[in-house]
Amino acid sequence: MTTAMEREAITEYLEIDLETESWHCRVCDHRIAGARESYKRGLLLYERDPRDIYEAKIDAEYSHAPDPEWCRIVEFYCPGCATQVEVEYLPPGHPITHDIELDIDALAERQKARVA
C-alpha cells in the first residue's frame, strides 16, 4: 500500500502537491501552476504606481512616495480567491523574478524518507 504524499507548504499562501506536482493556493486550494515552473505563471499580475500605496506627503522631487519612473510595484493575486500572494518592487519593465525553483524530485524523496 502506498501512502498519499502530504502537501509541502512553501510560502505563506502557496503549497506543493507532490502527487500532482502542482502549486496550490493554501487559502482556496486553487491549482496555480505546475510545480516545476514558476508559481507566478499561474497568478494574476497587476502593475501599481507606487503613489497608489505611499502618499507623497511632500510636494517635492524627493518625497515619501517612490519615484514612479524608477519603481513600480507588481502585485500577484491568486486567481481563485484574489489573495495577494506576493509583491515585487522593480524598475519599470525589469524581468519578473523566478524566486523559487524547487528540486521537486528531491522534495519528494525527502518526504518519503521522512515518512519511512
Partner: peptide, 20 residues
Amino acid sequence: AKFPTIPGLFGGYGGPSTPV
C-alpha cells in the same frame, strides 16, 4: 528616496521612501 530600501514579504509591502 526614489526606490524603497526594502520590500515586504508574501503579499506585504515595504516602507515608504525616506527623503531628507
